[in-house]
């Protein structure tokens, strides 16, 4: 089966650097949960997290638990490496998953050959630890 780029062990791999407002996103993933910013004023879900709600302007948010179910909204297949960290993983597919709750996030699919990736494919969350600190929200075919 195909590998995902996150299996790269090179030191120049661009692991996420948690920001102040985004740190809880990564903490929850370490516990196996995908949680997304939800505005407590108007209820809008927002990913990536921002300092203010783009809909109502509120700064009051909570981290809402997602079911982990979604579908592939769009995808690209990198067939020629454009970064040294990814050279060993060509070709790889990057997908935008649309969660059933609405937010979309970038990810990779575990154990799905790139030529089988399609828009609309149902997927489910597979949190994958890639370092002591970082667990990525990868997905598997549902």
């Amino acid at each position: 089966m195909t590998s995902t780029p996150a299996e790269s062990t090179r030191p120049d791999f661009p692991l996420p650097v948690p920001s102040e407002d985004g740190a809880p996103f990564w903490e929850h993933l370490r516990n196996g949960e995908l949680r997304v910013h939800r505005c407590t004023s108007c209820g809008r879900l927002q990913h990536p997290p921002r300092l203010m709600c783009v809909q109502c302007g509120s700064t009051e948010r909570e981290w809402a638990l997602m079911s982990g179910r979604g579908t592939v909204y769009s995808f690209v297949i990198t067939r020629q490496a454009v970064h040294p960290s990814f050279e060993g993983h060509i070709p790889y597919a990057t997908v935008i998953v649309e969660l059933e709750e609405g937010p979309r996030l970038a990810s990779n699919l575990i154990d799905v050959p790139v030529d089988e990736v399609a828009i609309g494919m149902p997927v489910h969350l597979a949190p994958t630890a890639v370092s002591d600190e970082i667990t990525l929200p990868l997905f598997r075919r549902a």
Binding site: P14, P16, V17, S19, G22, P48, T94, A106, N108, L136
Partner: peptide
Amino acid sequence: GQGGAAYTEPFGL
């Protein structure tokens, strides 16, 4: 992997 890139680059964007 910094800023907004934390949510894209690890997946190869």
